[in-house]
Computed example of a mutant assay.
Amino acid sequence: MHARIDAGAASAGRDPAAVKRIYNVFGLVTGGPSLDAFQWPASRWVEELTTLVIEGGMDTFIFGPGDDVVRQVELFAAEVAPAVREAVARERR
């Protein structure tokens, strides 16, 4: 799909690199392992989102917590987002 987006942008005279690749992720940051999809500890979120950036070409994530919204957004902002930035920076070096 990224190739189609890139081709469309180029044919419209836009730089494909300027197109944001946004991915909505819905779930919960948990305190430990869970069998439920997208209900993971921060470390697993970091692994999954880093993979989506490095291998999938995504550059922006919108987090939608399923419960306890304020606390979940705080956890995501404090524990997941900075760690993903660091992991991506390490991978790109």
Rank of each mutant, 00 (worst) to 15 (best):
A18Q: 07
V19G: 00
V19D: 00
K20C: 03
R21S: 02
I22D: 07
I22M: 09
Y23N: 10
Y23C: 11
Y23P: 00
F26K: 15
F26Y: 12
F26W: 07
G27Y: 14
G27M: 13
L28C: 13
L28K: 11
L28Y: 12
V29A: 09
V29S: 04
V29G: 04
T30N: 03
T30G: 07
T30R: 15
G31D: 08
G31M: 03
G32F: 07
G32A: 15
G32W: 04
P33F: 01
P33A: 11
P33K: 06
S34P: 05
S34N: 08
L35S: 14
L35A: 02
D36C: 00
D36L: 00
D36S: 02
A37W: 13
F38T: 11
F38Q: 12
F38R: 11
Q39S: 09
Q39V: 03
Q39R: 13
W40F: 15
W40N: 10
W40I: 04
W40H: 10
A42C: 06
S43H: 11
S43N: 04
S43E: 15
R44D: 14
R44K: 15
W45D: 02
V46C: 09
V46P: 10
V46T: 06
E48A: 10
T50Q: 00
T50K: 03
T51F: 11
T51M: 12
T51L: 09
L52A: 04
L52Q: 12
V53I: 06
I54S: 07
E55C: 10
E55D: 15
G57S: 05
M58F: 13
M58R: 10
D59R: 03
D59T: 11
D59G: 13
D59Y: 07
T60Y: 05
T60I: 02
T60S: 03
T60V: 03
F61D: 11
F61M: 15
F61P: 07
I62N: 14
I62G: 11
I62K: 13
G64R: 13
G64W: 14
P65S: 08
G66V: 14
G66K: 14
D67M: 08
D68R: 08
V69P: 08
V69R: 15
V70Q: 13
V73Y: 09
V73L: 11
V73N: 13
V73T: 14
E74T: 12
